[in-house]
Structures are given as structure tokens and as C-alpha cells.
Amino acid sequence: MSERIIEFRDALREAMSQEMHRDPRVFLLGEEVAQYDGAYKVSRGMLEEFGPRRIIDTPISESGFAGMAIGAAMLGLRPIVEFMSWSFSLVAADPILNNAPKMLYMSGGQFGCPIVIRGNDGAGGQLGSTHSWCVEGMFSNVPGLKMAIPAFPDDAKGMLATAIRDDDPVFFLESERLLAMKGHVPEGDHYVPFGKAVVRRPGTDVTLVSFGRPVHFCLDAAEELAKEGISCEVIDGRTIRPLDIDTIVESVRKTNGCVVVDQSWSFGSPGSEVAAQVHAHCFDDLDNHVMRVHSADVPTPYAANLEQEYLPNARRIAEAVRSSLYVA
């Protein structure tokens, strides 16, 4: 493991910077990415490094600049679009959902769309309902796009570098709550393949499956449950599309139990998809039905205590695990 420890946000920047040095077709555009150094300082210093032709400040105009980037990708450039928040992607729904993931299909294979759209996703900052979107549930429904959601700084770098090199449109979901997280991040080239989940904590009694920030909630819950003698295996799915169902199934066949933890709403979500697939693959292996822990099925609240209760937090995960194991 690398000796070097850096923040999640700097790992993201390293991936972009490295790929921009490698490939002149790669450029970054979005609100405040250049002169302001990024609303969350992810692109800090990149304007000086690459100049205004490749680090491009846009007006607040998500539909326009996302659509523009998609047009540029059709011609072979490889844009990185930063949405300050995925919550703002909703005004760009037509280009990002109707154009980017469908262009290859509708053109019969003639025009692909090698674009990365990245930004903050998820609640937790007391931003209220309009700014707290988890878009996993809504957007993972759409074929033609890939969806990556890193939980650790080394994956932030390795998965973003992979996303930029990918020939398909990648929706890259970052958590503002994780940007200051520090961790070992390899220097130089580092690529994490898509569709390869990773076991973050081995265990024997139940499999916890999650994506992005809630992986940390799972690890917290597993730590608590260990004190009660319950051994959880925690799987970080890393990408929702493609979904590494094989790693999940392998674990569930060992533990005979499964709790899916997903920060999107429960109805029609990655969590419900994983549960359905586990039921199909592991019907005879399960000692209980797959349980799911999601954000509460309400608009995101502002009040700190309500927001904490809203999230798929460690307490709610632990309760689901105990219930799954018929404990309590």
C-alpha cells in the first residue's frame, strides 16, 4: 500500500490531472471549476496547470453545458462535466438521460458518448430537500450509462481515472461528506476496474452490501455488531452499473444472510435491484429474506436530528441485521 496519505478531493484531482496530461482530448467544465478552484476545491490549481481552454468556467446553465459537452463527446472529445451537486442535474435531465446514454444505440453504433459527469451526491450536509438528492435510484434505471460511486480516497482516484478512459458515459457520484476523508492513495497510474466489488470487512453471519458513503455506515454497524458476537461481511459495490452481482452472491452463499444498504429511496432503487437479484440467485441459500435499509421514504429534512434519522445510519443497519438473524 502506498505510504502517501491525501484527501479524497485531492485524489479526484490527481485522476483528472493525470488523464489530462495523458490525453489532450480530456477537458473539465462546470460552474466555478476554474478561477474559484471548484466549489468544493476538487479542481484546485487545475486552471494554472492546464489553462482556460481546458479548465472551463461555465455559467449556471446545467442543461446547456451538459448538452454542449455531450455534443463534443460525439465528436470524440472526452469531457469531464462537474455538477456542483447532482441535485442540479435535474434541470439537465434531457441531455444527460435522453442524449448521452442513448446516442450509441439510436445511431446504430455510429456515435458514442465518452463523457464523465461528476459531482456531489447525497444528503448529510443539512442542505434541505432540493440540494440533497441521491440520484442512484432515478438514474441507475437507465441503460447505456455506467454509474460509479467511490467510498474511499484510493478508489476515488482509481475509479475516476477509469471513468475518464471509459468509452461509455459514466455518472460519477461523489459525497461532499467524504471529500475531506484522508487515506492512502497510490502515486502515478492507478486504475480500479468497473464491475469489481470489494470486500471491505470479512465476516461469516450476514452480508452487508452498499455503495458510496453508506459503506462507512455499514462498517460502523459491523463494528458495533461485532461486540454482540455478530460477524458481518461488508461489500463495497463500487459501481452500480455494471453491478458485480457475482461477488455479492459468493458472499451470501457463505453467510446465508443479506442486508442491502442504499442511500437512495427504497422504491425502484439499486437496493431493490440487488435484493431482487440476490433472491433470484440465492433463493435456497438464504435463512431470511433480503432486508433493505434506505433513506427514509420522505423528502430530505433540514433539522440535524431528522436528517440523521433519515439516512441509512449505523443504528438502522444494526437493527436490520439483528432482524435478519432473528436476534432481538
Partner: peptide
């Protein structure tokens, strides 16, 4: 209207190829 941001992007890409690359 969906093609109008795409059109700007196509022109942007051609200019980027001509000038930046």
C-alpha cells in the same frame, strides 16, 4: 430544441480540435 446544446458542443469540439489539439 435538444439538438441546440449538442450543436454548440459539436462546434466547440471542432474548434478545440483545430486550436487546442
Amino acid at each position: 430544441g435538444a439538438q441546440t446544446p449538442l450543436g454548440a458542443g459539436l462546434a466547440f469540439a471542432k474548434k478545440y480540435q483545430d486550436e487546442v489539439i
